[in-house]
């Protein structure tokens, strides 16, 4: 099977039952994507496919061939961090660091959803073209990413800062 991950192509022989998560972690050694429940309840395995966030534990790898997959390893490295990764450090948006890659990729996906004007359950006015960036809007949209250490405040601060002061790439609003 052929996969395009973080701009690299991979050819692997794979059992068709393999989830995208297990492909990344166990077969390709991309262990930045985490397994917290393997049943779509925690968000630790969030990756981006064509910029949209999905839960890789609920995705069969076979269905994601030749689609543009981005994992945390493709967003930034310890030596060259993405602005959102830097924001997570500055606001202490993590403690153990296990849910963190999923939180960060989820926030990258969230920024695009806001950019596209996709409303959420807490969006006050559904008829507006743009969605106002508020703390509750971020909280609602990040609620699929569980954090047990309790870094929620720092995560929301980091994401809000990223959305309100987008780096040159230009994100939300």
């Amino acid at each position: 099977m052929h996969f395009a991950i973080n701009g690299r192509s991979y050819d692997v022989e794979l059992d068709i039952r393999t989830s995208l998560l297990d492909l990344l972690r166990d077969r390709l050694g991309l262990t930045g994507t985490k397994k917290g429940c393997d049943q779509g309840a925690c968000g630790a395995c969030t990756v981006l496919v064509h910029g949209e966030r999905i839960l890789s534990c609920l995705a069969l790898a076979v269905q994601y061939q030749r689609r543009e997959i981005m994992t945390i390893e493709g967003l930034g490295t310890p030596n060259a961090l993405h602005p959102l990764q830097q924001g997570f450090i500055a606001h202490d948006g993590f403690q153990c660091g296990y849910c963190t890659p999923g939180q960060i990729l989820s926030a990258v996906g969230l920024a695009r959803e806001l950019q596209n004007g996709v409303p959420s359950a807490v969006t006050a006015n559904l008829t507006d073209d743009a969605v106002e960036v508020t703390a509750d809007e971020v909280r609602e949209r990040m609620s699929g990413n569980l954090c047990r250490c309790g870094a929620h405040n720092g995560i929301v601060e980091a994401v809000l800062e990223y959305l309100r002061e987008p780096p040159e790439t230009g994100a939300a609003r």
Partner: peptide
């Protein structure tokens, strides 16, 4: 250890 953790490299 922040850079390692946010990069999924821990």
């Amino acid at each position: 250890d922040g850079p390692l953790k946010v990069a999924g490299a821990a």
